[in-house]
């Protein structure tokens, strides 16, 4: 390759090379979702016909699977549970993380670095390390088998993550702005709420998006702490309760998977850029 202006032909070749190589990845990433949707809309006779082409719907689209999900299962209860749990756990974690993140990023006091390290270590603790003792903690707290078991335990992974993310955003705000407010007679809390928070809105949006996504998607705790059908989350309800006996009803199973993923897909499409920046900031900053 020669430095400087490249010919038109070389540019087209390069673009073609790029597309040709990236398309397999796009196909690999999207195919399971495509297959999920198409399975949920197919009739059982076509689904279990070995001669049919699995990529297409040839005998007409049916909505029976969704009908079954809406009227014969507790699907909407699960969705409602998931929504309550995600919104509550995310809100609680956001408040705790704003306070801790600001303190760790901005204030100077003995031990601040050790606290920062503790938060970072907690961030790396996988939920699967602690689910057995936590299942006993929720029993002792008397909230076992209720949605409160999840509202109380989800902040254990949300708060470290959110604190970590917010610390990065708080550090980008110039210190002078806060000092001005303090000199003007604002209290420290007022400075945080009125001056710092409005400047950290992108970080807060990221925390809310990731908090909602992580709690909505969470599987291990939701499976472990809740066994009553009426208190399950959408992800666990679809995964555990739609499988009846030894027969898998793939149509309704895939319909449940599509619908329970839909809220996340909608938010994701809307806020794509925040997901990308939050992902990068959360892992790399600090």
């Amino acid at each position: 390759m020669v430095v400087g202006v490249r010919s038109r032909g070389a540019r087209i070749r390069s673009a073609a090379f790029g597309y040709a190589n990236v398309l397999p990845f796009v196909f690999f990433a999207l195919f399971p979702f495509y297959y999920m949707v198409i399975t949920s809309l197919k009739s059982d006779t076509e689904l279990y016909n070995l001669k049919a082409v699995p990529f297409l719907i040839q005998t007409g689209v049916i909505t029976d699977n969704y009908h079954y999900l809406f009227f014969k299962t507790e699907f909407w209860t699960w969705m409602k549970n998931s929504l309550i749990i995600s919104v509550t756990a995310t809100s609680i974690s956001l408040v705790i993380a704003i306070l801790a993140g600001y303190s760790l990023a901005r204030l100077r006091f003995p031990g601040v670095n050790s606290f920062g390290t503790a938060v970072f270590i907690t961030y790396l603790v996988p939920p699967t390390l602690l689910f057995l003792p936590l299942s006993q903690v929720v029993v002792w707290l008397g909230i076992s088998d209720t949605i409160w078991a999840l509202i109380v335990t989800y902040p254990t992974f949300l708060v470290p993550f959110s604190t970590w993310l917010l610390m990065g955003y708080f550090r980008t705000i110039p210190r002078e702005v806060e000092e001005c407010a303090l000199v003007d007679g604002a209290s420290r809390l007022q400075t945080l709420v009125r001056i710092v928070l409005p400047m950290a809105v992108p970080g807060i949006v990221c925390v809310v998006l990731f908090g909602f996504t992580l709690t909505w998607n969470e599987f291990t705790y939701a499976l472990t702490f809740i066994s009553q059908t009426a208190n399950k989350t959408a992800v666990v309800g679809v995964t555990a309760d739609l499988i009846r006996g030894d027969i898998y009803y793939w149509g309704s199973l895939m319909a449940g998977a599509v619908l329970a993923s839909l809220p996340i897909v909608i938010i994701y499409v809307w806020f794509l850029d925040y997901y990308v920046s939050g992902l990068t900031a959360g892992a790399v900053k600090g």
Partner: peptide, 20 residues
């Protein structure tokens, strides 16, 4: 956006699709 999607969707649900 397309490439990042598998990371965002609930893993338990996308794994159901893979199982199928």
């Amino acid at each position: 956006g397309a490439v990042l999607l598998p990371w965002v969707i609930p893993t338990a649900l996308s794994t159901l699709a893979w199982w199928w």
